[in-house]
Structure formats: structure tokens, C-alpha cells
């Protein structure tokens, strides 16, 4: 799972979001590190819809346009859970080895 896909799924955990809502949420979640471009977002949404990980929730009119809201499916939730566990296990591995060595400067404990 790519980092943008991971963040898109994470953004949808809190409830359905429309395209721009996902962009804004991902920027927030990643503290501004991941700034999704529209081409990348819809590339990811297209795959996620195709894979059944997300689906259309509803369409709402806003400023004369239709906003499509997407929501996470049960399958998407499982995929995200599996990925989060994998990343956490990797992080734990690194942290354990780091702790065995001398503490890194500038960090406490």
C-alpha cells in the first residue's frame, strides 16, 4: 500500500469525505508532509473503488456542483488495519534495536 493510499483510507476512517475533504484531511493528518495532487488522489480513489476498499456514500450539491462523498468499506477497514499493524511491527523492530544502542542525541529516555 502506498503512503497516499494509506492516508486516504485513514482520512475516511472518521466518516465519509469528498475529494477536497480528503486532500485537506490527509494534509492535516500528515502535518503537511503529504500534499495530494488531484491526479494522485483520483488515481488512488479509482483503484480503491475498483478493489472494493471504498465506495460512494452520497452526492451533495455545493456551490452549483455535485460533491461525491466516499466511505470506507469493511474490506477497506481490514486492509488499513493489516497495513497499520505491518507498519507498527516494522517501527517496533527499529525502536527495539535503537534502544539497545546508545540513546540518540537530543532525545530523552
Amino acid at each position: 500500500m502506498t503512503e497516499p493510499t494509506f492516508f486516504v483510507l485513514t482520512a475516511l476512517l472518521d466518516g465519509p469525505r469528498h475529494g477536497y475533504g480528503i486532500v485537506a484531511d490527509v494534509a492535516d493528518l500528515s502535518q503537511g508532509r503529504v500534499r495530494l495532487k488531484i491526479g494522485s488522489l483520483y488515481g488512488a480513489l479509482d483503484r480503491l473503488v475498483g478493489g472494493g476498499l471504498i465506495e460512494l456514500d452520497r452526492e451533495e450539491a455545493w456551490q452549483g456542483r455535485l460533491r461525491r462523498y466516499y466511505r470506507l468499506t469493511e474490506r477497506g477497514r481490514h486492509a488499513l488495519d493489516a497495513e497499520a499493524r505491518r507498519l507498527a511491527a516494522n517501527a517496533r523492530l527499529a525502536s527495539t534495536r535503537l534502544r539497545r544502542q546508545s540513546p540518540i542525541e537530543g532525545t530523552s529516555g
Binding site: Y20, V23, I38, Y42, R65, L66, R68
Partner: peptide
């Protein structure tokens, strides 16, 4: 085919950004 499905949504999201 892709545009038929996604274009309007992409435009709306882009204009909001």
C-alpha cells in the same frame, strides 16, 4: 471513459484546492 466517470468530481476537488 475515465473522464466520463471522474472528470466532474476531479474538477470540483481541484477548484476547491
Amino acid at each position: 471513459g475515465y473522464r466520463r466517470q471522474w472528470e466532474d468530481d476531479m474538477v470540483a476537488a481541484f477548484l476547491e484546492t
